[in-house]
């Protein structure tokens, strides 16, 4: 089977019906996508499938066929970080950072095509992602910087 990840086509094996997470990590060596719980409860494994943040741990790899998948490795464009990555790094948000890839991809989708988001909307949109180090307040304030900059 072929899948498209970060604008590249890959041939992958789907014997035994592996999850998208397993295929990304074990066959494509894209280990930026993390395992956290295996039941879509923590958000560590989220990738963008046709732009929608999707837990790859419960998504069969076969379900990703014909779709565009973006992982954390695909966000950087020609050495330039995505604005979400940039602000989270500038604000020095993370501690252990294991949640970071899932957080970032969730935020990228949340902010896509939106000029403004209230703090409450950020909290609602990010609530499916767990940061066990509890850096939540800093994530919210960092994302607020790029979602509220155009406010009058």
């Amino acid at each position: 089977m072929r899948i498209n990840v970060n604008d590249r086509d890959y041939a992958v094996e789907v014997d035994g019906n592996p999850s998208l997470l397993e295929v990304l990590r074990e066959q494509l060596d894209l280990t930026g996508t993390k395992y956290g719980c295996g039941e879509a409860a923590c958000g560590a494994c989220k990738v963008l499938i046709n732009g929608t943040p999707t837990p790859s741990c419960i998504t069969p790899a076969t379900a990703a066929q014909g779709k565009n998948i973006i992982t954390i490795e695909g966000l950087e464009k020609e050495g330039e970080l995505h604005p979400v990555q940039k602000v989270l790094m500038e604000e020095d948000v993370f501690q252990c950072s294991y949640c970071a890839p899932g957080m970032i991809l969730t935020a990228v989708a949340l902010l896509e095509n939106k000029q403004q988001l209230s703090e409450q909307e950020i909290i609602e949109g990010m609530n499916g992602n767990i940061c066990r180090c509890c850096t939540y307040p800093k994530i919210v304030s960092a994302l607020s910087k790029i979602t509220q900059k155009d406010k009058a």
Partner: peptide, 20 residues
């Protein structure tokens, strides 16, 4: 700032669970 911060933000850092 976190000295190797960029590696974590880009998914490049290999935790043990990522190593091959």
């Amino acid at each position: 700032p976190k000295v190797n911060g960029r590696d974590f933000i880009t998914g490049k850092h290999r935790y043990v669970s990522d190593m091959v």
